[in-house]
Every structure is written in structure tokens, then in C-alpha cells.
Amino acid sequence: MTIPFLVSHKAGRCLKFNKTLYPQETLRRFTEAHGADRDFVLKDEGRSFTVGIKDGTDEEYLDVLQYFLAVRKA
């Protein structure tokens, strides 16, 4: 599977999240909860921020998307 919205970064691939749609706090919580088994890199870019996973697979990036929607509903 290829993820078309993954952004290429000099440090690798990353997901770009718009702050209006994805509150930074929610994703910070996700990275804190899963930080032990994955190496996350969060970068603030003004209106958006990026989440990079060191050597992250597509499935790991998709987990981030799933977490956000699950938390929103809860």
C-alpha cells in the first residue's frame, strides 16, 4: 500500500496534520502512549504539525489516523 498524503522529509517520511482538524494534544498523547516501542518525531509547522516515525511502516502511520478518530468519538 502507498499512502499518497505522506510527506517526504529530510529525516524520512512523515504525516502532516492540520491543527484545526487534529488537535496537537491528541497526537501528543498518542506518541506518549506508544513512545516506548516507536520513535516519534513531532514538528510544529505553524498551522500544521508533522509526525514522523523512525523507520515507520505504512501500518504504523495508519495507526495514528485510527487513534485520532477513536479518541474523538470517546
Binding site: T20, L21, Y22, R72
Partner: peptide, 22 residues
């Protein structure tokens, strides 16, 4: 509205991966 989008996305979690962008 966004609330509607989030809820529809949540309802789709079992069927599909969902990513939102402006």
C-alpha cells in the same frame, strides 16, 4: 460540519482507514 465528519470517520473505522486534510 467537522463534528459530522469525525463521527462518520469513526463509523468507518472498521471498514476503512480515514485521513482528513484541509
Amino acid at each position: 460540519p467537522l463534528q459530522t465528519l469525525y463521527s462518520a470517520g469513526y463509523a468507518f473505522m472498521d471498514k476503512a482507514y480515514v485521513y482528513l486534510d484541509t
